[in-house]
Amino acid sequence: MNTHALAAVAATSSTIARPLAVLAGRAGGAPLTYVSLAYVEQRIDLYLRFGEPTRIIRLDRWRRVAVFPPGAMFCRIRWHANDYGTIRWQLMVMQACTPLDAAQRIPGVLPGARLVLHAEGEPAVRAVLAQIDAIEALGIAAVDVSPAYWRTLGNRLAARLPLPEYTAERHAAWLAWKALP
């Protein structure tokens, strides 16, 4: 995707469309994924639960952009409130794509990403956060977890079925499969 297409996508994006378009123009054709993050006390909190960005660009006091290389896994949580309390909880586990991959358009993520898990609403988000905490308690970094597990977790959430555990054995099987030529 060229810089003109990135700029067009950025123009329709939400919170930080103009700064992201400028960053995309500077990318020089590098297949990077730009993820918007923001924090306004008692109103909005867009943050990374896990993920290892190559850099974070501070746009102003409230907004930042995390930059991810192709193939990187990350989780962004979105929380919104108004004068009466929380109005939105959202958790997305995504994988940054290369220009040849099929990517979904996600507001605040340029040029897009592969969405592997989407949880909407406080109970669903809290259930996924509990699973992430359990995975990290095993000594496994959440970015290294199998994308198939995240998809399964999302499908189980949608079907309101019990959520599967991520075990050390499942992780070892994933790492063995990744090591195959």
Rank of each mutant, 00 (worst) to 15 (best):
T167V: 04
A8Y: 13
E136V: 01
Y34L: 09
R78C: 11
P19L: 05
M1E: 03
M94A: 09
D133W: 15
A134L: 06
H118N: 05
P69G: 02
A38C: 14
V35G: 07
G25L: 12
W177V: 07
R126M: 06
A148H: 10
F74Y: 07
R156G: 06
A141C: 06
P111N: 03
P69H: 01
A103D: 05
H4R: 12
V125R: 03
L117C: 04
D144T: 02
Y39A: 14
I135N: 10
V65T: 11
A21S: 12
Q42Y: 06
I132R: 09
V40D: 09
R105C: 14
R76N: 13
E120V: 15
A81T: 13
R64H: 14
E120D: 14
A137H: 12
V128I: 03
A8H: 13
A141W: 14
N155I: 07
D45V: 04
I57H: 14
R18C: 15
D144M: 06
W174G: 12
A81I: 14
A66F: 12
T12W: 15
E136G: 04
P99I: 07
P162T: 00
G85F: 08
W150I: 01
Q95K: 12
A158G: 09
V35P: 07
R43A: 14
R151S: 11
G25N: 09
I87T: 14
I57P: 05
E165T: 10
W150M: 01
L100A: 10
R63N: 15
D133T: 04
W150T: 00
Y84W: 10
P164Y: 11
T86M: 10
Q95G: 05
V143E: 04
L115T: 03
Q90D: 13
P107G: 08
W177R: 15
